[in-house]
Design a protein around this nucleic acid. Structure first.
Lengths: 240, 240
DNA sequence: ATACACGCCTATGTATACAATCCGTGGCCC
DNA sequence: GGGCCACGGATTGTATACATAGGCGTGTAT
């Protein structure tokens, strides 16, 4: 009973369900039955309900009419829209940050993160995409932390929590290694430009850059959707 | 037991709690105790927990560390930011609508709504602000319904559900009746411009208009904050 | 006097029994 | 033959008892 994934049955159940949903074991539209789940997990209905509530707050479940919960369905168009939305919110967050001014220390830290991303790419033909993806997520998190508005930061985090809308969701090997390299170069140029614009307090510019930057994720998604739709974890959520 | 506000204890409890929070009876930061609330409402803890979970989804409550719920605190800055965010999201929704194209029927309907808003103002010195506010909300709802992306529409609705971020939150009598009239005239010009821009499929323009339009709400909030901070229902949520 | 530890008290977490509701199905009446 | 009503099973809604954990106060020992 002393697991590490949360101290209560409800938290563990939420974790378990979240995993199953993201893996696609519970596809969109699936109705969740309290008794069945409680049975499988060998707990009572109470913590199962609690877990489903939490996942509804996260946006992975929806309350069904007449009670109960259903796994939320995401179409391909939804994924594109969520990326667009992420770009808009990151843009707004960064514009506010730029207008409020960013401390030299924070700018230096961001700059250092971009340098580290550069170093991964230096190794040339076969960059460590796993590592890049991880650092990229850290960089984007550092960006949202700048935002002086908690309201906006919170909504941004909410959207990023959707597995296909996170900044690193589609930094993965594509069929064409050259295309990967090119998209990383573009992304890095945009990262630099974003830090520059923040330093210069160019709110409007940094907003536009953030939106354009999200566009890369959209392109990667589109490229991927055509060929490897089954091979990506995040793609398991597609219903259509 | 046969009330009209929802058929279950949980829904009634959620309604009751929502009212108390919005009225300011339960100020931000207040911890909600299950037993006490269950007692007051003469129901058991189970539906109370359910109600709190729903309000957490709405963003009115937060889960406290170590369990339980706390009424979410909103500062004055949060209210300003929420209005900004609403403008950004309405702008994005309308941009996508414009890019996708809006049917002539929908445009006619919007135009009719703006006409009806005009008619309220025609009566001159003492417009029926209650009625204006109501129609204004209907107009804004009609705008979000245009949005082809459910993901974005949903986030917009979510933000609008905050009582101080709704488009009609601050259409109220001010000390200076002339200022009210002027702000209504400006708002109506923007309403017309938004419909025009939609018709012309001017995505970027309609986005800018929506943001600027939200700016009126911010100005009203600022004007109000200085004088009548206690007299507005939505202001009851301020903590600071 | 201060610090640590123990224990109680309070609040949430969990299990479970029972109630109510909703939906589907079958039969009967029109 | 079609529509409506009634019944039944499945599923969630609610109440309640018990478990557990976390916080605070008090007591004692150093």
């Amino acid at each position: 009973m002393t697991e590490e994934r949360g101290s209560t049955h409800a938290k563990r159940a939420a974790y378990e369900l979240r995993q199953r949903i993201v893996k696609g074991e519970l596809p969109g539209g699936t109705r969740l039955y309290e008794v069945a789940l409680a049975d499988e997990m060998a707990i009572s209905r109470t913590p199962v309900r609690e877990a489903m509530s939490r996942l509804a707050e996260e946006g992975l479940l929806e309350r069904a009419r007449g009670g109960g919960f259903v796994v939320r369905s995401f179409t391909y168009a939804d994924m594109v829209d969520a990326i667009e939305l992420r770009g808009v919110l990151e843009g707004t967050a960064l514009r506010l940050s730029a207008e409020a001014g960013v401390s030299p220390e924070a700018l230096a830290e961001l700059s250092a993160l971009v340098d580290r991303l550069d170093q991964i790419m230096v190794f040339g033909n076969d960059p460590d995409l796993e590592r890049y993806s991880e650092l990229n997520a850290i960089f984007h998190d550092a960006l949202s932390e700048l935002c002086p508005s908690e309201i906006i930061r919170r909504e941004l985090e909410r959207v990023k929590s959707l597995p296909f809308a996170s900044p690193s969701a589609f930094v993965f090997r594509k069929r064409d290694p050259d295309a990967v390299a090119r998209s990383l170069v573009t992304a890095q140029e945009q990262h630099r430009a974003i830090v520059d614009a923040l330093a210069a307090r160019q709110g409007s510019r940094v907003e536009a850059l953030a939106r354009e930057h999200a566009g890369i994720a959209r392109l990667n998604l589109e490229a991927k959707a055509k060929s490897e739709i089954d091979t990506l974890p995040a793609m398991a959520l597609i219903v259509e």
